[in-house]
Nucleic acid binder design. Structure first.
Length: 492
RNA sequence: GGUCGGUUGGCCGAGUGGCUAGGCAGCGGUCUGCAAAACCGCGUACGGCGGUUCGAAUCCGCCACCGACCUCCA
């Protein structure tokens, strides 16, 4: 574990050297999706960000236990007493069991995350499967005196907690200011203060998802699930807690309060937050009407998109920005990413054609060091990608005989390029839709291109161009080179 | 209103007190029957105004603008 990985810790607001509590083990907890709707572009950012962290930590030799939850209960539409559970609401509207909703959208989430080449976490616990654990934490908090009961619901007493431990250490908020700035919502009469939050809520008669508890038949609050599940699988204190910046307050703040109240410890030592995605400069949001699901992205079926964008284009695009910056989606920017990715992937293929030579003219060790340095600097994937493009230049030069490698160095170089671009960044060559008879297409194309070459040989350019243009119409691009013609399927 | 962050060349997007990423687009060239593709080369940008400094886009102050969170959101 000889590395100098530094990560920006939201708790301290600066970059810190990463030191695990119990090396070589690393505990990583990331807030996963609330499965009440189709996965959208926003879901891809944290998934890809923490996939990169997961992959890199693993590469460095750590034994990473990566826990990413699925929220299938407790996430309410709003903070009022009568706020409806997101899953339950969808279930009511669609006349399905809440678990059918949760299962369906979990499956959809997995489908699209797989397409983005996001590795599955080590453990993917569901909130509804951990009601007992959540109730246990609620009890501990009540026993310690940091929560109160009201009409069968249990609320966290933020004011009391703040006196003993200070509430707001993660988000930098001060309770007095919260008092004056928090908006008053209807139906908060049960809470002592507007910033108190529910640990357990009594179910209304029509509420579908409900479990028995010492307090009432009800359901858990939103924040308690992460505390219960991270504690169960990673312990009272673990290494890294991640999630989107939008969760920083109140979700993560509440998690910290719950853990400190129940266990006396801040749950995680490093808090990592990815920034948001904007579309044409504006934040993507349900209410803003610029909400794009991943399916719409992959099919191009959305008014803001002028074509379909592949999963790898989106992955590459996201990785081209640093995870703590906002990243702005536009057709122009995606076009640039698509071209750039293609260039990189082509270079990786061409790399195999390099012939070993008597001497090496390229400083591989330096190249490798620079790649590691980029990642060690708070996962600076855009800088790493810039280095990889330097690598592609070297590849082109080597293919043209302007750079050379000994057999051993060539192996090292090839390994390094694959390691960073594929194993760590998780990029891969995308194969076009399954062709049931690839060898037939190969044969047909070989024949056609031979005919075209013959036509060219006798200067029958009319026939040659007819073949070329006709193929283009069909979505096949012919690329002439010194070694003859090649072809590639281009989906428009 | 409070808290936090941002403002970089046509676009996206890194970054550092002086050595001035990278991608895309653009331009020029090589190649080609013509194209396309590919390859090579080129562009000196850091919101405004002050200050610190031998030197700042990079540090400090003020101003402007944009955004995030404070309500559901990844």
């Amino acid at each position: 574990m000889d590395n100098n990985l530094t990560l920006y810790n939201t708790l301290s607001r600066k970059k810190e050297e990463f030191k695990p509590i119990n090396p070589p083990h690393v505990g990583l907890y990331v807030c996963g999706p609330t499965v009440y709707g189709d996965p959208h572009l926003g879901h891809s950012r944290p998934a890809i960000t923490f996939d990169l962290l997961f992959r890199y930590l693993t590469h460095l030799g750590y034994k990473v236990r990566y826990v990413r939850n699925i929220t299938d209960v407790g996430h309410l539409e709003n903070d009022a007493d009568d706020g409806e559970d997101k899953i339950a609401q969808k279930a009511r509207v669609e006349q399905l069991e809440p678990m059918e909703i949760a299962q369906y959208y979990s499956n959809r989430y997995h489908l699209f995350m797989d397409a983005l080449n996001v590795k599955r976490p080590s453990i993917e616990p569901r909130a509804s499967g951990h009601i007992i654990e959540q109730l246990q934490i609620v009890k501990e908090i009540l026993d310690k005196g940091y929560a109160y009961q009201k009409n069968g619901s249990v609320y966290f007493d933020v004011e009391k907690y703040d006196k003993d431990h200070r509430y707001g250490t993660l988000s930098g908020r001060v309770l007095d200011e919260l008092l004056s700035t928090t908006r008053e919502l209807e139906g908060q009469s049960e809470k002592h203060n507007s910033f108190d939050f529910a640990l357990w809520k009594k179910a209304t008669p029509t509420h579908i998802m409900r479990w028995p508890s010492p307090y009432s038949e009800g359901f858990p609050g939103w924040h308690i699930e992460c505390t219960a599940m991270s504690t169960k699988y990673l312990g009272d204190q673990f290494d890294i807690h991640g999630g989107g910046m939008d969760l920083l307050f109140p979700h993560h703040e509440c998690e910290i309060a719950q853990s400190v109240a129940a266990k006396g410890k801040t749950p995680a030592r490093y808090w990592i937050h990815n920034n948001m995605i904007t579309i044409n400069g504006q934040k993507m949001g349900k209410s803003l009407g610029n909400f794009i699901t991943l399916e719409e992205f992959f099919t191009g079926n959305h008014k803001l998109l002028n074509k379909a964008w592949s999963p790898m284009t989106i992955r590459f695009f996201i990785l081209q920005a640093h995870y703590r910056s906002t990243v702005d989606f536009s057709n122009e920017a995606l076009q640039a990413a698509e071209k750039g990715l293609e260039r990189l992937m082509n270079a990786l293929e061409q790399m195999e054609k390099i012939k070993p030579a008597g001497q090496t003219t390229f400083d591989i060790q330096n190249f490798k060091n620079k790649c590691y340095a980029a990642l060690n600097d708070d996962l600076n994937s855009p800088v790493l990608i810039a280095h990889l493009f330097e690598g592609t230049k070297v590849i082109k030069a080597a293919v043209a005989g302007k750079e050379s490698f000994t057999k051993k160095d060539l192996e090292t170089f090839i390994h390094t390029m694959h390691l960073f671009s594929e194993d760590i960044l998780g990029l891969k060559v995308e194969t076009e839709g399954a062709n049931p008879h690839p060898q037939i297409l190969e044969g047909v194309m070989k024949l056609l291109l031979e005919v075209r070459q013959q036509a060219k040989n006798v200067k029958d350019f009319e026939t040659a161009d007819r073949i070329r243009d006709g193929l283009k119409q069909l979505g096949i691009e012919v690329r002439d080179s010194k070694d003859g013609a090649e072809w590639v399927v281009k989906t428009p």
